[in-house]
Computed example of a mutant assay.
Amino acid sequence: MYAQRRKWSAEEEEALLAGICKYGPGKWSYIINDPEFRAQLSNRTNIDLKDKWRNMTIKEEAKTLVNKI
């Protein structure tokens, strides 16, 4: 069936952000295959990275909107 969802660790989030800084959003396979990030993201897929980035971005936009109110 489906794999059980795992909570993202701080190390995984940092590796994702560093990978996005290096390659840009949307370059998920580059990030996963980069030796610098491979160990931290070994249990994640391209889709996991895409979804996490989208959720992190939405969360940040929500904080910005709340601060404007």
Rank of each mutant, 00 (worst) to 15 (best):
K68G: 09
A39N: 11
Y2Q: 12
D34S: 08
S42W: 05
R54L: 09
K7F: 06
Y23D: 06
K63L: 12
D34V: 01
E12C: 09
I32S: 07
G19N: 03
D34T: 04
P35F: 05
P35N: 01
K52N: 10
K27W: 10
L49P: 09
F37W: 01
C21V: 02
E12P: 04
K68L: 13
L16K: 04
K59C: 03
D34Y: 01
I32P: 01
N43L: 11
A62I: 05
A18W: 01
I20M: 05
R44H: 12
N43F: 07
K7D: 13
V66L: 08
E36W: 02
Y30V: 00
P35Y: 03
A18C: 05
L65G: 01
L41A: 06
S29I: 11
L49Q: 08
R44F: 07
S29L: 11
I47C: 08
E61C: 03
A62Q: 05
A62L: 04
G24K: 13
K68Q: 13
N67I: 03
R6W: 02
T64E: 14
E14Y: 07
A39W: 02
A10P: 02
N55P: 00
G19K: 04
P25V: 15
K68Y: 03
L16P: 05
Y2R: 11
Y2I: 10
T57E: 10
A10E: 13
W53P: 00
D48W: 04
E60K: 14
P35K: 05
N67Y: 08
S29Q: 14
A15P: 05
D34N: 07
A39D: 12
N43E: 12
A10D: 13
A10G: 02
I47E: 13
Q4C: 03
L16H: 08
D51Y: 08
Y23G: 10
V66G: 00
R38E: 10
E11M: 02
N67W: 06
Y30C: 10
I47F: 12
K22N: 12
R54F: 04
A18F: 01
W53S: 12
S9I: 00
N43H: 11
